[in-house]
Amino acid sequence: MKEVELDCLGEACPIPLVKAENKLKEMEIGDVLIVQIDHSCAMKNVPEWARKEGHNVEVEEIDDGEWEIIIEKVK
């Protein structure tokens, strides 16, 4: 199990989502991807996408207008 951080701070939609999608493809089942974002729309569409794909997702607000989306790859 490894943990990968993906820095998407300052990136506008849809780049965080596309980057997360690509990154997650390279990862193994059980790995955890942490996507750092500060785009309020990505805070909604990245978790929505990951949940639909069936992964475990958690959103953490780490600062004003900054979030970490924690995705555990399950399949």
């Binding site: 701070l9 300052g10 004003d64």
Partner: peptide, 10 residues
């Protein structure tokens, strides 16, 4: 919602 942040150009 306490979510304001100046997002600089990257």
């Amino acid at each position: 919602s306490s979510g304001f942040k100046i997002k600089k150009l990257k």
